[in-house]
Design a protein around this nucleic acid. Structure first.
Lengths: 227, 227, 227, 227
DNA sequence: GATGAATGAGCATTCATTCAT
DNA sequence: AATGAATGAATGCTCATTCAT
């Protein structure tokens, strides 16, 4: 059993190592330009070895997505465990998300890849894809739950279905991150007219914006009185 | 000169025709699965002829992006021409954008392609790319200008740089559209837990949300009195 | 039209050239060991060019089969045009077949490949496969027709369905050719115990054997009287 | 020694087990599509273990051929032990062969594989290959011996070298079996024009055909008188 | 002996781009 | 200007075989 554990651990370690390497390469050159050959070479492994760990290129990239979403969910889950008004939870979830992407921009790429797979109907079957699905749903659930808490504790208006509100927040957040993380280029400078805004600033103001928008008027008044 | 004009017009017509065909193919099979061979065939042209009109595949697709952004900007420009409160202009810009994408989803794909080019640092140089840049900047300008009008006429709070606010709105809008247009799949159902929300509903509520958030308190009060 | 004909002729010539090269390579190394790369190189063409002429490896090999079976059928057809007793036609068909394989052993390989495709259920769809089917059926028809002629003119016994008899003759002939054309090797020498029999001899005696077997007794007597 | 015998017996049992598994897999998916991985897995063994028993894939498949030909030869040998006219022995050998293939079609595949190895000059050296050679030669010998008996007892004509006649019968038999066992498919139906003939029927008529052909005229007359 | 993780040569196929006509 | 035949680099994947444990 001891031995079996060691083998299993070693195998898992190598699997993680491949994902590590793939993450680095994707960060450097993007998903499209990363080949299995290169991953193998950089990982110091034979090409075939990759296929012992991942059924194909798509699955390997989904594994990155899975790892990233699991990490993110761990952070988001901790937020939900806190006893705070829903509106504050939403704000914290947002800040956590942005902080996570800032620290691990590669996962933003991986999440986008995952969505492009769904969109292009090239999604593969398998355990990892399932995990990605579950993780995406879980992240969504955290948002919806925070909204429900807020609607219940009176900090968030109840005029919109929390699931719809969740989709809006989730989608908008991704869009803003996308904007914030567009690779530096002449283009970006033009759009931004030479002014750069940090992802934090963009996202912070976004949170303020929708926070005010969805805050319950009474809760808002109370808060203003406190100030 | 007459003759030259005719020639030039014919040439331009063929260029537009190629773009037409490419748009249809992209709608049908996505950018990844659309080949130059197929475009040429469907356009009734030789493969080499495509290269007389576009330097390469990327440029051809950028031409679609350019056309789409030009069309969109024409619509957005008309909004700005109207004498309305800034906050209303913003709302109208948003509704216009969503309506445009709903009618021409292929341009959403094209705009995303354009951004992926920037992101993957595979952007090409050339006149069309410049035009796309300019158009993107122009769209952005419309938003910023509407925000500035709103800040000036007192309908929008002035606590955030209008350019930053513009980026936020622009990015968030794209993110929501992305969410709304994810192809139907098991995945999407899971995320949405079986409930579907139309792009209009999502975007409408989003506009309400940020509208309230950025509305100037005084303007808000006035409006409430009216009601 | 002149020009169009030239183009078409040139294209066809190149197609035939590719088949020529493939035939040589298959003769040299067998089908399994012949790669598309090698065919392209030996043909003095780019790898992609092969795919302009043949949809894939299987189709290219079927084209060889098609060419071979068409050539063979042309020869067999001429036999049937002759006004001879059925039993003699059968004999002539057999001799023609063996002569053809002797001159073009590569087609024996190609025919076997075709059958292995059917057997392994990897047969591809397409015009060439259809032609191979038709040609195989046509060859079979020649045999059956000769048998029917023989049964009618009294030179062949009528106690077996001519179609079944055709299958027997066709299958047996292939088996004998297979035996006769086993590549030289220690193995073959062992089976044959050091004695070699030419394909002609083997097949000639085979024809005599089944000829006697299926000959109508009366016809046989007449013939014997003549002698 | 006792212990050593047990070890040796166990080893041999495992070897046979691997062959068993390989036979099943080949029956199911054909030789081309059967991988060493799959054989190992289905045999409940490690992949490396296969190589302790067989030097490589080819040798493993030759082992199947060897087993099959040994089994067949055992049956054929019993025929020869009977005191019967040569012509009857030939007929019995044929019926035995067809019955054996009918019961064990996998060996037909294996025998064909063996011949394709010779043909493609990919034959390997080694004890098993030698055994296959010997077995093939032995089968051939049974036929030749039966022919010699027949020529001696006057039941078979002596005008052809019995070794050549053996080759003819052996090759033709295989060809007919090949025809009879072509997998059902559109192709086969076309060749057969919708009519199916069983392997027994095909082979039975074949035996009659060549039986008559090689039967000695005097023996024939005697037989006819009996009837 | 037994294992199975690692290997890497080998292959078919695609497709954007070029260029001779 | 228009063509489309030719190109060949690029890539994902398979699988028989080896070898350290």
């Amino acid at each position: 059993m001891e031995k079996k554990n060691r083998k299993a651990r070693e195998r898992e370690a190598r699997t993680e190592h491949i994902i590590d390497v793939a993450e680095v390469l994707i960060s450097e050159k993007g998903i499209e330009n990363t080949t299995m050959d290169e991953i193998a070479e950089r990982a110091g492994l034979g090409k075939g070895t990759l296929y012992l760990h991942f059924k194909g290129k798509t699955v390997l990239f989904l594994a990155i997505c899975q790892r990233g979403s699991a990490k993110l969910n761990r952070l988001l889950g901790r937020i939900l465990a806190q006893d705070l008004p829903g509106i504050v939870l939403i704000e914290k979830l947002g800040k956590t998300y942005i902080g996570f992407i800032k620290d691990n921009p590669v996962y933003f790429t991986a999440f986008s890849y995952y969505e492009s797979l769904i969109d292009s109907q090239n999604m593969v079957e398998g355990a990892i894809a399932e995990r990605c699905e579950e993780n995406a749903q879980e992240a969504m659930n955290y948002i919806v739950r925070a909204l429900q808490i807020g609607m219940h504790d009176g900090s968030i208006k109840s005029d919109v279905d929390p699931r719809e509100l969740g989709l809006i927040i989730w989608g908008a957040s991704k869009g803003i991150m996308n904007m914030a993380y567009l690779k530096k280029s002449r283009q970006r400078e033009k759009i931004m007219q030479g002014v750069e805004f940090s992802a934090e600033s963009l996202f912070g103001h976004f949170i303020d914006l929708i926070g005010t928008g969805m805050m319950h008027p009474d809760y808002q008044s109370k808060n203003e009185l406190k100030q």
